[in-house]
């Protein structure tokens, strides 16, 4: 029987998790990765009264118990956005709903460190909450209004950032669409159609350099996002190439505030977007499920070390 100290809940094609498992293997850690898309390969036995979970995979048996499970790396959806799809076979509907509930129920292992606890992630994803917490901690934020009304008081000649309140990945027959952050003149906003759904409206900050901060516990990794040595106008994610991610050290107070923000939201990990403008750092948003693996090669940042340290109880 293998005693599991670190549980990783992932998916076979989540290659980010590979970095973490490689490092845990190198450290001879007692860990188990389970993949959500292959639950049918496992035999699962949860003895509820003993709070003891046994997982069989082939000839291997793994035991998870509150006395020995130290950490959980949770890389799974917090909820299913679209449970009912007309063409989804009933078996798949059952598989998705029940296993999602099962892994959510694993939060009964509440003495373990969670990266991140799904309850905290669900709450932390509220962008209005994020901005208020950031402001209260001392991270400056752009002026922000959430509205569905053209009667919003804005300057028609000024530029604003318009974005969605929740990630808007939209299906359009044989295509897909995503709403990035858009730079829009106030006049266009005043004349647009808004009342169907709320938008986030923020002052446009310029000049700007986008900063990506990855926080795990007390460890902070920061990169400047540049194109040809300069800040990127608009949403940098729309550029597929020629973007450089340059590691640098944040000022101590900004770094400390980022750590405090993640903790205040009940998280262990956060991917924070900041804007640097004329020496000032503005908070834009935090993503509790933010990606980081691309920075391993693009910026030579071994973020998996920080994550593995945290999972092993170091720099918590």
């Amino acid at each position: 029987m293998n005693e599991v100290h670190i549980l990783i809940i992932s998916n076979t094609i989540d290659f980010t998790t590979d970095y973490v498992c490689l490092e845990l293997h190198r450290r001879n850690a007692n860990y188990l990765r389970i993949n959500r898309d292959e639950f049918q390969k496992y035999e699962v036995f949860f003895n509820v009264l003993h709070c003891s979970l046994t997982i069989r995979l082939g000839d291997e048996h793994y035991l998870l118990h509150p006395n020995t499970l130290k950490a959980v790396y949770y890389r799974a959806p917090i909820y299913l956005r679209d449970i009912y799809k007309p063409n989804l076979p009933v078996e798949e509907q059952l598989y998705r709903t029940q296993w999602t509930a099962f892994i959510r129920n694993l939060t009964v292992f509440d003495s373990a460190l969670w990266v991140n606890n799904p309850d905290a992630t669900f709450r932390a994803e509220n962008k209005i909450l994020q901005l208020i917490v950031a402001k209260n901690i001392g991270l400056p934020c752009p002026n922000t209004i959430v509205t569905n009304s053209n009667n919003v008081e804005i300057d028609e000649k000024k530029d604003y950032i318009v974005k969605s309140l929740d990630s808007a990945v939209l299906r359009l027959e044989d295509k897909e669409a995503f709403v990035y952050s858009n730079r829009v003149k106030g006049g266009e906003i005043k004349n647009s159609h808004l009342n169907l759904a709320p938008i986030i409206l923020q002052d446009y900050i310029s000049p700007k350099i986008d900063i990506r901060v990855t926080v795990i516990g007390h460890t902070v990794y920061a990169v400047r996002i540049l194109k040809e040595g300069k800040g990127v106008e608009g949403d940098w994610r729309t550029y597929k190439s020629d973007i450089d991610f340059i590691p640098f050290l944040l000022p101590d107070n900004v770094s400390g505030n980022c750590v405090s923000l993640v903790k205040a939201l009940g998280l262990s990990f956060g991917g924070i977007d900041l804007i640097e403008s004329d020496g000032n750092f503005f908070f834009i948003e935090v993503n509790p499920t933010g990606e980081w693996a691309w920075l391993v090669n693009a910026a030579n940042l071994k973020i998996f070390n920080g994550i593995c340290d945290y999972l092993e109880g170091i720099n918590v």
């Binding site: 909820y79 990606e291 691309w294 090669n297």
Partner: peptide, 19 residues
Amino acid sequence: PGPRSKKCDIETGEDQKGE
């Protein structure tokens, strides 16, 4: 090809809040 930033490839890390 390696992982790239959000929305540029098949990774769903950024969207794993819901699927």
